[in-house]
Every structure is written in structure tokens, then in C-alpha cells.
Simulated scan of single mutants.
Amino acid sequence: MLDSDFNARLGDFGLARVLDKEKTSYTEAGGVAGTLGYIAPECFHTGKATQQSDVYAFGVVLLEIVCGLQPGTSIDEFHCSVDWVWYLYREGRILDAVEERLVDDYVVEEAQKVLILALACSHPIAGKRPKTEAIVQILSGLVSVPNVPPFKPAFVWPSMPSTEEDDSCTMETRS
């Protein structure tokens, strides 16, 4: 979203309603503000919106678009769409998450790419999420989707610094 001077400010629509243009953190707004489901887990500890928390919210928006579900929608035993899609991914059925009203009116490879990218963006550990530049390259088809682990990793706080060799969301350039 943009402020009145067209500077990028926030990634969460609920947060945008609460914060005026001079406030840049959840703490300044009087606690964690925003729309549940779009708020990155670390924000409950730091009280700050960051580029990484924006990437998390973007991943949730991608899931909302492809799945046709709001993030807090309960599906079976899952209390949020991110957990449900991660389960389907682990089971090898990620395309079951595609909005059923689309029937077969979508490109399978593109839907799969966006769903896996959404999982990478909504990774519980902020340092494992792809950078904005990588997201653009993935959506443009210049870079392959990240390698996302089949089981949703646990949120750890404080997060450990990631190393390139330990990164579970590495990307491979297409030839």
C-alpha cells in the first residue's frame, strides 16, 4: 500500500486502517494491530511490521486468491488456510486447494507454482521467506519456485540466523 507521497508503507490492510502515516509499528498503534491470519508470527514478539512480515501477508493473499478462502477459514481439523494448504502439499495433493469454482479453467503448473510460492512466503520463520525481488522473478518465470519442506516448520523465537547452506527455501535459476 502507498502513503500520500506514494511511498510503500504497509502490507496488512487491517494495520493500514489503524496506523496513520507517521506510525510504522504495531507497538505505536497500541499493540498488535492488523487482520488475524495476515499477521506474521514474529510480529507478536517484535511489535514491528517489516519487509518479511509483508512477504508473509503477501503469501496469505496469494492463498486467498487461489483457494478462494479467507485465512481464518476452518477446514476439517485445520483452523487456517495456510495449515490446510501445507497439509495438502505434504500429501502430494496441493492442487486440491485450488478454488473449486474454477473447475478445470486454470493452468495447473501456474496454480501449483503460486501455491508453493505462497507457502514459501508464509514460512513461519521470517529469514526463510523469499525476498521481494525473488518473488517477482518467480512470478515472471525467471526463477523456479523455492524448495519448500513438506512439513510446515515450527515457529521459533528468537529466530536463528539462516545460512545459505541451511536454507530450506533455496531457489534454482531456470536455464
Rank of each mutant, 00 (worst) to 15 (best):
L19I: 01
V148I: 09
F6D: 11
A16W: 11
L95R: 09
L142H: 12
V156D: 05
A111P: 05
E42A: 00
Q51F: 05
F6L: 12
P130M: 08
P130F: 05
E165S: 13
E100F: 13
L10N: 00
Y87R: 09
T173N: 11
S159K: 04
S25H: 02
N7K: 14
T50C: 07
V98H: 05
E99Y: 10
T170R: 09
S140G: 10
D167C: 12
P146N: 09
V148D: 03
Q52G: 04
P130H: 08
L2Y: 15
T173L: 13
G127I: 10
R93G: 02
T50K: 09
K21G: 07
Q51P: 06
K21M: 08
G59D: 07
G59P: 03
L69K: 15
S162Q: 15
T46I: 07
A57M: 01
A16V: 12
V18K: 14
F44I: 11
K113W: 02
G11E: 08
E164L: 10
D83Y: 01
P153K: 08
E164V: 12
S162H: 07
Q70G: 04
M1P: 13
C67V: 03
E165I: 14
T35N: 13
V61D: 06
Q52H: 10
G72S: 08
P41W: 00
V18P: 01
D54W: 01
V145N: 05
D104K: 07
K131M: 10
T170Q: 14
A111K: 00
R174H: 06
F78G: 02
S4K: 07
G92M: 07
D54M: 01
V98L: 06
S144A: 15
G14L: 05
C169Q: 04
L102Q: 12
P41K: 06
T27G: 06
V108M: 14
K48V: 11
A120D: 04
T132E: 12
T27M: 15
Q112H: 12
L117M: 11
E91R: 13
Q52E: 15
K128W: 10
I116F: 07
S168C: 14
W86V: 00
G11Y: 03
D54T: 04
E91H: 11
A33V: 06
L115Y: 02
